[in-house]
Design a protein around this nucleic acid. Sequence first.
DNA 1: GCCCAGGAAATAT
DNA 2: ATATTTCATGGG
Length: 300
Amino acid sequence: MKIQEVSNVVSGSIPFDELSGGIDLYRTLASGQTYRWRREDGHLFEPPTSLPTPWYETVAEGAVIRVRQEETSLHWQGSRDIEEHVRHMLRLEDNLPNILEQGPTDDIYQEAIEAHRGMRLVVDSLYIGLISFICSTQMHVERIHKMVQTLMREVGTPIKLDGRTYYAFPTPEQLAACSEAELRACGLGYRAPYVRETAQALACDEAPLPSTPHTEYEQLREQLTIYPGVGPKVADCALLFGMGCLEPVPLDRWIQRAIRDHFPSCDRDSYAETSRAIRSYLGPYPGYAQTYLFHHLRTS
DNA sequence: GCCCAGGAAATAT
DNA sequence: ATATTTCATGGG
């Protein structure tokens, strides 16, 4: 790792030969896991056509973070040295081939991992995952992204770097201070009161997020449903993409369709029981298998 | 106009 | 307890 500093911008690169399975930023950041990244030119949902890729950028840990793929490395820039956090957020320590080869032998899964090489899971934070996926109900991936980006721009804290302004994901206090009308103006529709009330519960410490390390996954999922707008599916997404727990298999439309068409033996009469069956079927990293299946089915 | 979208809450049976 | 309806809203 080498770090250079030019006009307040710190940068460095992580060679691909340090990353088992490499990384595809487009598939990682535009696959409906996280909504707080944007592409420098605004075209997040278009695959890059050449190297280096455009910059992908966000604010995390109070710092501007920009990443792009170059020929032989993942290059990053930041308002300070944020390489450790980049490694954490993009799960760069995950051994992708080892994880993916332990999935099921079904054709549909093999097809999915062939088609989307380099897609990693992400870790936002339990809080960001919770708010993002409260916004996700009955909504396209592209529109969820627009909603979250609007929330960041209108409510989040601005940070300037190199003449440009970036915005952090709003804090619970910032969201709790918004009126329902203001949140509706950000395009949230009927989700506005859910976001507001959940943020209020967190901001006033009335219902703090569960302390995660010593609680079982199924218990955590249950505990998260106390927040308005959070059912089992949203809770699963927050735990998987927010907290970084690899057990959850969010049962959305696409996965329910996959169960019906490809894994009918896992179909049960409740979310909790179907979840157990499909998790057991998908192998030791159910969340990874789920995300490849979701992205593959949704985009094909 | 009609239908759909990474569902959850309210209401009816 | 379980099944159906309602909830905004932009885009195809």
